[in-house]
Amino acid sequence: METRRVIVVGYDAAQLLDIACVTSALESANWHGAAPCYEVRLATPGGRPIVTDSALTLQGQVTLERVTGAIDTLIVSGGIGCENAAADPSIVAHVRRLARQSRRVASVCTGAYVLAAAGLLDGRRATTHWQWARRLATLHPEVRVDADPIFIRDGEVATSAGVTAALDLTLAFVEEDNGVELSRTVARGLVTYLQRPGNQAQMSMFVSAPPASNSLIKRTVEHITGHLDADLSTPALAAGAGVSERHLTRLFLKHLGQTPGRYVRQARTEAAAHLLASTSLPMAAVAARCGFGTAETLRQAFVDRYGIAPSRFRLAQAPA
């Protein structure tokens, strides 16, 4: 194959960034020596221009219905028009047809709705934007929806979370095709994170504030995130909040969907990920600063959370 043929499927009200993250990363890979190079084309119904959900118009480069031949990668974009696209028999049928001609198939964000409608996610584990995951699971119970990861690879089919997670997925493809050095070069050129593991959570608790409706939970969370190396056991947190352990646990489950202990472990692991990526602190120092006590305890929590050892995670963030 002289080129890697990539077809990006767009439709009216597709998310512009879903498309641009993919195309920009792959074109950057070409500039930096991808071999074979990527031949990227935007396919639209009828080959018509599409109005994205950013109100900008994109010109289709090829007609979706007329695309034939072998495809390296088929990527379906997401956007607020996803449900209309998933309900369009023609779009769904042609995505299903093109998938049979593709080495790998992927969706960005709510493009998973289209893949699901085409039956391409049946029996597979898949993700999408966290805000749309529950509806996807309701509409397609045959799909094992996991709203947490940035992207999921299940065999030859990959799905990613919302918007800029497209960049993480595309960088993973570039690394798979060309090696880690080129992937890092592309990431640096795009001034983006080097490179988030697919199992990293879509939403960090440090940017997702707890519901302000419960002041006790808010105060407790603020204490946790500000004192990660302190005693954050459930008895200690309950004593600090002036409530029983049982009542504190009930409030955490109601407002945050998890127990205090699980929340603390998640907060400590996310903080450790940040320190591993942004500092050269020894592993034992990272563990102590984040409240894990030992490097081995940190390693176990990190593998549980991200599916990768902290040492490998740090190596992946290091400049080439």
Rank of each mutant, 00 (worst) to 15 (best):
T73G: 07
L256H: 00
R41T: 10
A86I: 04
T164V: 09
Q59N: 15
R103I: 01
E245A: 06
A86Q: 11
Q131M: 10
R134I: 03
P36F: 12
V163S: 10
L315R: 07
D12Y: 08
D146N: 14
I50N: 07
A161I: 02
A117K: 11
P310F: 12
L315E: 11
E83I: 10
G123M: 05
G240R: 13
R265A: 13
V186W: 02
D304P: 00
T127L: 04
R144D: 07
Q200S: 05
V40D: 12
S160I: 02
S311I: 04
R144T: 03
A277T: 05
L139T: 02
R96F: 00
L190M: 14
G291T: 08
G119Y: 04
L120W: 02
L42N: 06
H247K: 01
R250S: 01
D231H: 09
R219I: 00
H255Y: 10
S90F: 01
L42G: 05
A118M: 11
Y113I: 04
S24C: 13
Q61A: 14
T3G: 09
T170F: 11
C109T: 01
A288R: 15
D12W: 08
E142W: 10
T170Y: 09
A241I: 02
R97Q: 11
R188V: 03
A106T: 05
G46M: 15
R66A: 14
V92M: 12
L237K: 04
P149K: 15
V9E: 11
R268Y: 01
T138E: 14
L26I: 06
H227C: 08
V186T: 05
L298V: 06
A271S: 11
K254P: 00
L121G: 08
E27H: 09
R41E: 15
D12S: 12
R66F: 03
D177Y: 08
R314H: 02
F252K: 04
A230M: 08
V243A: 04
A236V: 02
L251F: 00
G291R: 15
A277E: 11
P282G: 14
V6T: 12
R41F: 10
V174G: 10
V8S: 12
R41P: 01
Q195K: 14
S107V: 03
G162F: 03
D122I: 08
V157Q: 11
L237Y: 00
Q317D: 04
L64G: 12
L26R: 09
A230R: 13
V62L: 15
R124C: 06
V191M: 14
R262Y: 00
Q59G: 13
V51C: 13
T159H: 08
E142S: 13
V105W: 02
S213W: 00
T3V: 13
L171H: 05
G257I: 02
A166M: 04
T220Q: 03
I152G: 06
Q131C: 10
V22T: 04
V9C: 14
A287S: 11
P141A: 15
I50T: 06
F313I: 06
L194W: 00
Q101K: 13
H140T: 03
R97A: 11
H227N: 15
V207N: 12
